[in-house]
Amino acid sequence: MSLAVAGSGGAGRRIGACGLALAGLAAALLAGVVIGETALPPLTVLQVLANKVLGAGYALYPVDEGIIWNYRLTRAIVAAACGAGLAVSGVVLQALLRNALADPYVLGISAGASTGAVAVTIAGLGAGLLSLSFGAFIGAVLAFGIVALLARAAGGGAGAAGAAQIVLAGIAGAQLFNALTALIIAKSANSDQARGIMFWLMGSLGGVRWPDVWLAVPVAVAGVLIVALHTRALDAFAFGSEAAASLGVPVRRVQAALIGSSALITAVMVSMVGAIGFVGLVIPHAARFLVGPRHGRLIPASAFMGAVFLILADILSRVVIPGQVLPIGVVTALVGAPAFAAILVRGGRRL
């Protein structure tokens, strides 16, 4: 009887936590729509949603309705999907590589995705047969492959030394692909294209619309679900790949599925909003501090915190300088760089 009561109590707490997380996410989305260059009343936002979703028929100014529905709501939703996806990708890479500094940005995956996206849009790679997201995916996978090969060539094996080699190789790979991106822009883009691409590369949600929502949300949800199905395997990887194999984990298949999912998430998000750094690095550590290292809790917590964090960062990017929108990557870097330094100093003995 006591075990049944304890089990029901645990289920109730999980349901309550999920309810609070959904309410917090809804509040963040509402704030992302209400707060901006021009403040809009929350009641107006709710009336626009009622008109569009339920056909309520409230009389509203067309300008306000357009700003809310076509600009701010799509921006907030894509920010949430991007934050959740990048945070979960950071969890995966930190677990698989057993390195506190691993994330899509540090390991060069974001830089590779940027190069692939720019090669398709500016240099015309694929002669129009490749989509922006697919080009970014190819670049992300290629970047991670080069980083892995470089780390192996440098003698990276198991343990802390191997993990440190992977991070160093990732830094080198990121610089390589950033240089390739700059070369493509300098060679193939005109002045207007170059200005727009450079702003986009620093992270911009200004151009996202509903078609981007219909791509970003399914990719983020699918990626998080795939990772969530491998929570026990990720827990096993905390003891190393050999220990995971001894526990019955199909190491190569799981690594391919999880790294492929992380690369796909990163590629799709980068193709929409540019290379936003530090989300995949900082958020997993913050979530781990709150809920512990078990991935059954860490993955949903990271997804929720990443979504809320990037919505709030987007709000700051629109209001911190009146009349000007900052690249969202600037905001995340201002928060993430000090956190990166703190993680580096605290974890230096383990790298």
Rank of each mutant, 00 (worst) to 15 (best):
D103P: 00
G108K: 02
V78D: 06
A160G: 04
T115W: 08
A189I: 00
Y105D: 01
V88L: 03
G126V: 07
I146F: 14
R98H: 08
S89T: 06
A163D: 09
G108W: 10
A151M: 03
L129G: 04
A160N: 05
A194H: 05
V118E: 01
A95K: 02
A117S: 14
A79I: 02
A179Q: 11
Q94C: 08
N190H: 01
I109Y: 01
S89G: 14
I122Y: 07
V88A: 04
A136I: 05
F199W: 11
D103N: 03
I77V: 15
L86T: 12
A81P: 10
Q193E: 15
R72M: 11
G155W: 02
P62W: 01
I185R: 01
I184T: 15
I171R: 07
I68W: 15
A100N: 12
Y71F: 13
D64Q: 13
I185C: 06
I122D: 06
N190S: 02
V78C: 12
I122K: 05
W69T: 05
W69K: 04
L150T: 15
E65L: 07
L201S: 15
A164D: 10
D192I: 00
L93I: 08
S191Y: 11
G196K: 03
A84N: 08
T115I: 00
A84K: 02
R98F: 04
A164W: 08
L150K: 06
A163M: 07
V92P: 10
Q94P: 11
A117P: 01
V63R: 15
R72Q: 14
F177P: 01
L180D: 10
A160T: 06
L130Q: 07
M198W: 06
G173S: 13
Q193F: 05
D192E: 10
Q165E: 05
G145Q: 12
V91N: 09
L125W: 15
R195G: 04
G126W: 07
G196C: 02
D64F: 01
L130T: 08
G155N: 02
V88P: 00
G124N: 10
A84F: 09
G66H: 11
F199I: 15
G173Y: 10
A113E: 13
A81Q: 09
T121N: 00
G159D: 14
L150S: 15
R195E: 14
A81R: 02
Y105S: 01
I166V: 15
V88Q: 03
S110Y: 07
R75D: 02
G196A: 13
A163T: 09
A136H: 08
N99T: 07
L132P: 04
P104T: 03
A189G: 03
L183Y: 14
S133M: 11
L97P: 04
A119Y: 07
L130N: 07
A102E: 13
L97A: 14
N70Y: 04
A143N: 06
A148I: 09
A123F: 08
N70V: 00
G116E: 11
D103M: 00
